[in-house]
Write a protein that binds this DNA or RNA. Structure first.
Length: 576
DNA sequence: GCCGTTTTCGGCCCGACTGTTTTCAGTCG
């Protein structure tokens, strides 16, 4: 029997690290807890099971010694830990939130608490607005303004969650509901179905013999914190994770119309209803009507067909070009995860990845890929031990050895070369020339002016060995704004030089976004959907990138890594 | 708190930026 999940154990260890950090504990002790959290969080076997069976000594894991092994075992078995309880009692609730604001680390958070009595984000905002923060030693006007901006972003992020997180929740709700008798149809709608980067709430539609018993069952889902409302056809709950979920029971003959209506987007539906009106029809969540007579509603296909349109994939429903395409029968056949043949941005334990090159390659093979580019950081990214020319060449020798040994997966000799602050690349051309695949990216000087950062990126693209520009805006959704970069100029340059742009599949990045993808496609720029994986599990992010690409209207032909490597290699040789 | 050891103590990734200072602490990646 399993106790706490690995994720829950990791969260507890992270919380200990946060509190110790806040209290100014030995930073290496803090790091030990964070390392352990990461180790546990990334393990595929259940730690609770390992403890139970006694089959493996936890202290044999990297970064986990005798002490942490015992603490983890206690956590796994009892669900809690005396140390954690004690630490929690020592700090006011909410104060750790302060550490999530960019620019505020343990020292400043402690100062805000000690000097101003700030114990949560609301009080922090108040203190900034009253200009009390700037009076503290080490703080000033600019810091105060930066904190306010950070609070704004945090507030936005708190209201919505990453699609990937919403997806996990949706899957477990679906699984729970599948145990309920009498549900004839069931589908999630809303921005989740459209694959938006973030999701504000979940809408679940069902056709059921007995809606009341379905609602009873829904209310028993383990994640439900509170039932907010319940009527005959609609029930709303709030989950412990803060997400609201609405369940709607709809009549079978209206399921398609309801699904269409609640999937949105709002703008898409406005256009749709306008179109219906032009045809002398009316559309609502119950169906398409001519006068009083329902002429469609059972399926979405039926609804769109009644309006003279092909069925539009949810990802495209943003009131952009989808109606024109649906009318003309030119809707793109959107790229699918099964089209993906390789991953062209992956890290290994030569820099900040957690797995060896071989482990990453085998994991990629297990995921059905036929090639993978190892693109570790260059030396400028010193914090992670970025590679210089010598180490990079050593890595490539290792890759040669692996390629001779491994079957069914080709490992490409790649690098993620840093675009330096003052322009230029972090590795000499003769080294880059030896690589199979070079992605260039920005890590430093992210706050430069639009002109400056754009110029250095355009210059990097001009280097004949650079094939692709990675995470092109640098944004972290809800956390960090994009660079001030002129993306259109980058797309034009890429088109002119035959360079590719990355759609980074990490659920917090997902740049290029849908609009930029569409622009790249329009200009004939190939998009590389890549995971930027730093672990074996990181390779699973590919599907988030594919979803974003679909929202941008990309087809298999628009995605570079939906092609075999031999074809890409030919393209690259031609451009050099 | 972990780890390795010239084995029980000392090092643990470190350079750059920002905003604050007036020589540097804090934060970030």
């Amino acid at each position: 029997m399993a106790g706490l999940t690995n994720a829950e154990i990791a969260a507890a260890l992270e919380e200990i690290a946060d509190i110790l950090d806040f209290q100014g504990a030995n930073p290496f002790r803090v790091r030990a807890y964070r390392n352990a959290a990461r180790t546990v969080g990334e393990m595929t076997e259940s730690v609770a099971d390992l403890v139970e069976s006694g089959e493996r000594d936890l202290s044999s894991l990297p970064g986990i010694g005798k002490d942490l092994a015992e603490k983890i075992a206690t956590l796994a078995q009892t669900g809690t830990l005396p140390l954690l309880e004690e630490l929690r009692s020592q700090v006011p609730e909410g104060v750790l939130q302060i550490l999530r604001i960019p620019g505020l680390g343990p020292k400043r958070a402690a100062a805000l608490y000690r000097e101003l009595g700030v114990t949560n984000l609301d009080e922090l905002r108040q203190a900034c607005l009253e200009h009390r923060v700037r009076t503290l030693k080490g703080f000033g006007e600019k810091t105060e303004a930066a904190i306010l901006e950070g609070l704004e972003l945090a507030a936005q992020a708190a209201q919505r969650m990453y699609w990937a997180v919403a997806d996990q929740i949706a899957q477990s709700i679906r699984q729970h509901m599948e145990g309920c008798k009498g549900i004839r149809q069931m589908e999630f709608a809303g921005s989740y179905r459209r694959g938006k980067e973030t999701v504000g709430d979940l809408d679940l539609l069902v056709v059921a013999d007995n809606p009341a018993s379905v609602m009873d069952h829904f209310g028993r889902f383990s994640g439900v914190e509170k039932i907010l409302a319940r009527g005959d056809t609609k029930m709303s709950v709030r989950l412990q994770l803060g997400l609201q979920v609405d369940l709607r029971a709809v009549p079978e003959e209206s399921f398609g119309a309801a699904l269409q209506y609640f999937t949105g987007s709002k703008d898409h539906n406005i256009v749709l209803r306008g179109r219906a009106k032009d045809l002398g029809l009316k559309v609502n969540e119950y169906g398409v009507f001519r006068g009083e007579k329902r002429i469609a509603g059972r399926t979405e296909e039926e609804v769109y067909a009644a309006l003279g349109l092909a069925w539009i994939p949810p990802e495209l429903r943003e009131a952009r070009e989808e109606f024109a395409w649906a009318e003309a029968g030119t809707l793109p056949k959107l790229v699918e995860i099964s089209d993906i043949q390789g991953d062209l941005h992956v890290h290994s334990d030569w820099t900040d990845g957690t797995a060896s090159i071989e482990e990453m390659a085998l994991a990629a093979k297990a995921r059905g890929l036929s090639y993978i580019a190892i693109t570790d950081h260059s030396k400028r990214v010193s914090m992670v031990g970025g590679l210089d020319a010598d180490r990079l060449r050593k890595q490539w020798e290792e890759i040669d050895r692996l390629n001779r040994r491994l079957k069914g997966i080709r490992i490409l000799k790649g690098v993620e070369v840093d675009i330096l602050e003052e322009g230029g690349l972090d590795l000499p051309d003769d080294v880059l020339a030896e690589a199979d695949w070079v992605v260039a990216s920005v890590h430093y000087g992210q706050n430069q002016s639009r002109e400056k950062i754009t110029r250095r990126v355009l210059e990097a693209l001009e280097n004949p060995h650079v094939a692709c520009f990675a995470h092109p805006t640098g944004r972290l959704i809800g956390k960090r704004k994009p660079y001030q970069i002129d993306l259109e100029a980058v797309i034009h340059k890429a088109a002119a030089l035959g360079k590719m742009l990355e759609l980074n599949a990490h659920p917090q990045r997902l740049d290029l976004d849908d609009v930029a993808c569409a622009s790249a496609k329009k200009h004939g720029v190939l998009v590389v959907i890549a995971t930027d994986a730093h672990s074996v599990d990181g390779l699973d992010a590919m599907r988030y990138g594919v979803l974003q690409a679909r929202r941008g209207g990309l087809t298999k032909a628009d995605v570079a890594n939906a092609r075999p490597w031999s074809e890409l290699a030919k393209l690259l040789r031609r451009k050099k």
